[in-house]
Design a protein around this nucleic acid. Structure first.
Lengths: 359, 359
DNA sequence: CCTTGCATGTAAATCGTGTTACAAATTCCA
DNA sequence: TGGAATTTGTAACACGATTTACATGCAAGG
């Protein structure tokens, strides 16, 4: 009995077959198809024959053979904490546009904040010969890779890494100025988890801007998103609003002496609003809430979210552009940091500070 | 002058170098490392030497050479409409768990409902020798692929495709029964976009169940999510709540004679609630809203969403399991369809039907 | 007549691994 | 002791495209 399932699809034609069909050598055909510089001596007539035959026989160069030879894969690795709502989704929508246009595909790897995975996945992807890396919200400090790396929302000054960062100072100024102008003086803060690179930078900007505005930060009004227990293995979705609900609830139990809260991101803000509501606080009448990111849902929640818009899609787009640029011209200079401008979007979750009765 | 930049990283050791170092042939080394059956004659002593040297020299087989030879890639292709909030994110969280555990990576391609891309991307990924496909929410009718395919939330009876589907009949019974028991008799429906495979199946179940319950469906109370204008190229995020906001708004302008609405998904429900609120209708006092999916945000919106929980993560998990199973045993029987059970989650967006004044 | 240059290509090496077919040495056994 | 079987390995090819180095024929120029 004959094997009926061949590994290559039946009609699949390779370079040798194409060359035989044309009664030319593989070299000639290859040179023409790749429009190689040393093919300039090949007459137009032959070129045309080759192109037509390739088209007609539906010739597709074997991806692995080609990659083996050129040692490049036309694909990049994307390293992210998780496939969370909001951040990942928004950034990637920009990334996808650019990569697709350049005929690049991408591998996604989720490290789930696991230190070991943050180091292992890049190595595994290098073995798969990705041409470059896109790091989303992932510390790049201890990563040493033989290919270009672009880190979005990270701040590591590492050779070989281009950082795409937000102007946090400007972001914080806009948010706090807005609250200040509404009369808020006692503002609570929900800091981001330690693992996220932006967290510390944002917090430093907050302290700085608070000083500039003459705002006192009451340590008992500062809470922090806790990543303990985050794990995809448990099936727990890491970026659920719960991350904001819990700390908000904890804060409300010990201290209600604030009229506004500045949350680390929109997801957490949605959770925080829910916690406020469950505790009998109206938003924005009793407490104003400011989020961060401006995810797509932010405009549709009730109340809709006042938030600092991070141009996530543009950051993804820009990041991918730079990466592709760096891949194409490996030995060229490249920017070490690109700063993007945030923009405050005022919606319903903030309002004038009112003198409240002690709840 | 000597080339200083070699294509392979300096310390990178290949099979030849490893063999030379061991003073053995490449064959022997290869046989041992792959634990090939014809290697059983190689003495334990030699095996051990080989393994140790490979470990010590940190030998990594070249991915392309290996794939070229074996024509398999240890990666699968994921085809989805977009990287939307909710659906994609939830399903993929399950998929990632399984693939990662099996040392598989995946390419993601977004077809954006473009017919041509739905056919082209699979071909491109086949060229990259993915070992199988996972189709998310994507029609598989006209796809003919030489590798195993698992379609999640599609209903195409195509040879070679395993479908992971929800029991829509059960889902609709639970939702409509719930509304019926709350006294609702005039129920509006927001149908899904034509492009999404689930849309028609869901709608058929709705008509069927409505008959069973003796509910009349008023055609003027049936609206439909419109995909016209969805496009990633425009930067418009396809799965924004806006998809529900607009049709709801349109419905309210011409007809307010209903006390509940059953939305195609949670994202649309969030948009619909917003539209209701903007039109002066309270949820659930004036209109009850039922969503579909139970995305992570559903529990945190205001009001929180009554919705039919689709076990998206489990569907992704199960889909990936089946795919890996099929890849491992190519010639084996496999299930053509796997049905998952939905579950109604009652929250705040539904309440008793009240006799309302004509608005 | 001999060299040079150009046009038009081709043979063969290369990338790194997996695998088939075979060789040399040793042991076994009647 | 001669032949078969087993052990221990190796040479060489396949995978499919790219690329270097070289070949051939022909015209021009000295």
């Amino acid at each position: 009995m004959v094997k009926t399932t061949t590994s290559t699809p039946p009609g699949h034609v390779n370079l040798r077959m194409l060359a035989e069909h044309l009664e030319l050598s593989q070299t000639t055909v290859s040179l023409v198809l790749n429009n190689s510089p040393s093919a300039k001596s090949i007459p137009e007539e032959t070129r045309k024959r080759v192109m037509e035959a390739a088209e007609r026989l539906n010739y597709r160069p074997n991806y692995f053979a080609r990659s083996l030879r050129q040692s490049r894969s036309m694909s990049v690795g994307v390293l992210a904490p998780d496939l969370s709502e909001g951040y990942f989704t928004s950034v990637m929508s920009g990334v996808v546009q650019e990569l697709t246009a350049a005929h690049y595909f991408f591998f996604t790897a989720c490290h789930d904040w696991n230190r070991e995975l943050i180091e292992r996945y890049p190595r595994m992807l290098v073995e798969r010969a990705v041409d470059g890396f896109l790091l989303l919200n992932t510390p790049a400090d201890h990563i040493d890779l033989p290919v270009p790396v672009v880190a979005i929302s990270a701040h590591s000054r590492v050779e070989n890494v281009t950082n795409i960062v937000l102007d946090h100072h400007s972001a914080v100024i806009q948010a706090l100025r807005h609250l200040y102008d509404l009369g808020h003086r006692r503002i609570a803060f929900m800091r981001g988890p330690r693992a996220i690179p932006d967290s510390e930078f944002r917090w430093e900007s907050i302290q700085e801007v608070a000083r500039e505005l003459g705002l006192k930060i009451d340590p008992s009004c500062v809470i922090r998103i806790d990543t303990a227990g985050w794990s995809m293995k448990t099936g727990y979705h890491p970026m659920a609003p719960e991350i904001g609900y819990k700390p908000m609830q904890a804060l409300l139990e010990k201290n209600r002496d604030f009229t506004a809260i500045f949350c680390f991101n929109d997801i957490a803000a949605i959770g925080a609003i829910r916690a406020l509501k469950d505790a009998g606080c109206a938003v924005p009448e009793d407490v104003s809430v400011v989020g961060f990111d401006d995810i797509v849902s932010a405009a549709y929640t009730t109340p809709s979210l006042t938030t600092v818009r991070q141009p996530l899609m543009e950051m993804g787009k820009r990041g991918a552009q730079v990466l592709l640029e760096r891949i194409a011209n490996r030995n060229q200079e490249f920017p070490a940091e690109i700063t993007m401008a945030p923009e405050l979007v005022v919606r319903e979750s903030t309002g004038p500070a009112t003198v409240r009765r002690k709840l």
